[in-house]
Amino acid sequence: MQNKNFSIGGVIWGKLKKNKLALIGAGVVILLSILALAAPFLTVYSPGEQDIGNRLLAPSAQHLCGTDELGRDIFSRMLYGARVSLSVGFIAVFISTFIGVALGALAGYFGGLLDNIIMRIVDIMLSIPNLYLILMMITFFGPSIFNVMLIIGLTSWMDLARMVRAEFLSLKHREYVLSARVAGASNSRIIFHHILRNALSPVFVSVIFGVGGAILLESGLSFLGLGVQPPDSSWGIILSSGKDYIDKAWWLTFFPGLAIFITVLSYNLLGEGLRDAVDPRLVE
């Protein structure tokens, strides 16, 4: 009679696998991660290797995505750039999730003055235009991969904090919380074990959406010259340096643009699929 797959994860997976778009999204996300990790094995040219004799070559069998104005292989630069873009995405989201979950949980669980202080900080952060805030902080700290991760993380936790707070407000009155307390569990154990586990599905969905958003933001910042700095490559940088040759060498902007587009789209498709799968009200 016991069905091992009847755990929460099993139910979500069961719904997710019926959603073809989400599965495609998941497939692409996994494929991209593998490509980025395996970059040294998949590329012939090193990403920084210049070959002025072969500059601005159109895509061919030797150079799958062509070469840029310094003769660097775009395919190599894109795979290595994927490492940067994806890791910026993940680490920024890790930072914002950590802050958002911790502050949201504390605000929702303890309420009162603490809640008031945290939520007013959220209000203030949300009332400053995000790009302006990021540009200001980058000007202050200086552009680098590390700063970009940190700053994207520090400026994108507010929605998650609100959501986690709302979850905690309702979950903290559940009777199993009282029964955990009766068993002698401490506040921190109740927050981070008993309640958080019940609030994880929306957090997970927001992480997936967040990665797509952070990749897009990083590309934008790098394009403006405020993100990752050359000679490191990221999709935004390739795009940015290619824009000067857009009339002569379309591949310089086309391929990184396509990569950003596909990546963000895949994360969003996966995120939407997950959101539908964890929402009990959306039963087909």
Binding site: E175, S179, A180, A183, G184, A185, R197
Partner: peptide
């Protein structure tokens, strides 16, 4: 907290809602 659960325990009315669904 050392008394709760160890020295004095409590059982509630609703066994349906008193157990955490995810553990």
């Amino acid at each position: 907290r050392e008394v709760r659960g160890a020295e004095i325990s409590m059982v509630f009315q609703e066994p349906f809602t008193c157990l955490n669904p995810v553990f």
